[in-house]
Design a binder for these strands. Structure first.
Ligand code: SF4
Ligand code: SF4
Lengths: 141, 141
DNA sequence: ACTAAAAAGACATTTTAAGTCTTTTTAGGG
DNA sequence: CCCTAAAAAGACTTAAAATGTCTTTTTAGT
C-alpha cells in the first residue's frame, strides 16, 4: 500500500540529478535519462509536466535542454511528487468534504487526515538541495 | 498518490462495524455487508483473509457468521490495513536492503523510511475499540 | 535550409483493482 | 440421514491504471 509509482521515482531521480549539476548549465534530457537510468521517452513526459508548472525551464532546438525552474533550495520533494503523482490522498474522504457521506461521524476519517498531514509535512521539509548534496562523510561506526 | 483501495476501505468499515456489535455475538456476513454498504461477495473475500490470520473468527453452517478474533482494543488499524493491502511501502527501496542498488548513497531513501515509520506509527496507535465507539458528545464550539 | 532538441499526442502492453459466479465444505435441525 | 444455512475456495470477468513506445510537430541555433 501507498507505493510511489515508477513515474514518481523516475521524476525524483531526474530532477535531483538536475539539481546536482551546476546551476544555469543546460542539460540534455538524454544525458539525464542515461545518468539516472530511466527510459528517455518516459522521462521526457515527466519533464514536460515539470516544465508546465515551472519546476524546470526548458529550451528547445539546438543547444536546448533543461535547467531547474528555481533554486534547488526552494523546490521541495512534496512539490516534485505532487507534480507527477497528484495530491497525497491516503483515502478519498480527505479529497474534500462530502466525498464520503459518513465523514462527519466516522472515527476513521480523522486518522487519514492525520496521515495526510504527516506525510506532506515530511516531504515538504526536504529540498532538492538537500537531496542533491553529496554525503559529506560516513558517520563513524 | 498513496491511496487506500476500496478493498482496504471496505475491510475497515466491515471490521469496525463488527467491533461495534456486542462481543460474542455472531454476525452474518450479509448483515455486515448491508450495514456498511459493501458488495457482499467482495466483503466475503475480505473476511476470508481476516479469518486466515485470526483477525476474525468464523463459524460455518446454520447459525454461523463472524466475531472478532481478539478484543477490539487489541486489534490495531495497522493490522487491518496490512491484512488486506499488504505492508506500508512508500517506495520499493524500503521493502528490503538491496531492492535498489542506489540505496546506500541515495539521499531520498531515508525520507521514505521516515514516511513509512510515521504512517505505521499513526495506524498502530488506533485500535478498533476507539474506532467503534460512539462519539461521546460534540465539542462545544 | 538543415539539424538538434523539446512538445504533443496517439498508441500498445501489462498489471492491478474491483468485483462476480460457481462449486465445495461445514454445521445445525427436523 | 437429509435438508438447509452459511462460510470457504477458486475460477472468471471487466475496467482502470501503470508503464511505456512511436510519430509528428514546433522551436531554435548554424
Ligand atoms: S474513513 Fe470514514 S469518512 Fe473516510 S471514506 Fe471511510 S467511511 Fe468515509
Ligand atoms: S529513493 Fe533512492 S534508494 Fe529509494 S528507490 Fe529511489 S533511488 Fe533507490
Amino acid at each position: 500500500m501507498m507505493e510511489l509509482t515508477r513515474k514518481g521515482e523516475y521524476a525524483i531521480r531526474g530532477i535531483v540529478y538536475l539539481a546536482s549539476r551546476p546551476p544555469e548549465q543546460v542539460c540534455l534530457l538524454s544525458d539525464i535519462a542515461a545518468a539516472v537510468d530511466v527510459p528517455p521517452t518516459f522521462l521526457a513526459k515527466i519533464f514536460q509536466q515539470f516544465s508546465k508548472i515551472g519546476l524546470v525551464k526548458s529550451y528547445r532546438g539546438t543547444g536546448g535542454g533543461f535547467i531547474l525552474g528555481r533554486a534547488a533550495d526552494r523546490i521541495t520533494l512534496l512539490e516534485v511528487v505532487e507534480a507527477v503523482e497528484g495530491p497525497i490522498i491516503p483515502n478519498r474522504c480527505v479529497i474534500s468534504k462530502g466525498e464520503c457521506a459518513r465523514d462527519t461521524t466516522c472515527n476513521v476519517h480523522p486518522v487519514w487526515v492525520d496521515v495526510q498531514h504527516q506525510v506532506r509535512d515530511i516531504l515538504n521539509n526536504v529540498t532538492l538541495q538537500k537531496l542533491a548534496e553529496k554525503q559529506p562523510c560516513e558517520p563513524i561506526l
